[in-house]
Amino acid sequence: MKENAMDNIKISAKNVQVYYADNHAIKDVNVEIEDKTVTAFIGPSGCGKSTFLRCLNRMNDTIDICRVEGDILIEGEDIYDRRVDPVQLRAKVGMVFQKPNPFPKSIYDNVAYGPRIHGLARGKADLDEIVEKSLRSAAIWDEVKDRLDAPGTGLSGGQQQRLCIARAVATAPEVLLMDEPCSALDPIATAQVEELIDELRQNFAVVIVTHSMQQAARVSQKTAFFHLGNLVEYGETNQIFTKPSDPRTESYITGRIG
């Protein structure tokens, strides 16, 4: 591990613009996301949080009308460079979606999906171990260990979301992007996922989009506030929530922009 604070930067975005056809959805965003840190993206609906998040693993490539400009570097490597394979990139930058989306396969196969595709396991025993470790780290192992062959779609919403987290963790990513991972969950499952995020921070850079100020305050160390496609303010979570420097941030966190 490198000592220098500057070297702790995992992702750095420079002058990023995103257009959906003529709609300028992200306007000149510059941000540096640190490794082994939870970064929260907050902001009113439609301000471009998901759009920016999807830039970080090039999921926007799957949308025909979407165009991204500017540079996004992960560990100094431009991910929009021609030589970068977006498929490989997505293995390195995992994503958990707003709505739980388990595959219509068994719980085991859901988690084993990534490792199988990328050939991460050396054998059946190895794969079993990865699956168990991922399910444990997503705090769902105890609930499903007796029914790994049951379909993943048969779980409850909160269990499905944790399964999706386990699935993302199983590919051993370096960065984990989470787009409103708790919006479909009850308070208990939310608490479990938040605890989980805190643990994941030991190994990954985690970026989480959330509509809950409390959640952002609880789980993140850094917070970025987006408004109408602009990155208005980015800094320590404590500072953003106690002494925001921009009036727009202040009115949002106190509930006046919504």
Partner: peptide, 22 residues
């Protein structure tokens, strides 16, 4: 659902892997 495809693509599967396996 598109979410199913996104899930697979988001794990680093190629398009044809996504089609065949999901």
């Amino acid at each position: 659902p598109q979410a199913m495809r996104d899930g697979s693509l988001g794990l680093g599967a190629t398009k044809s892997e996504t089609i065949r396996q999901v």
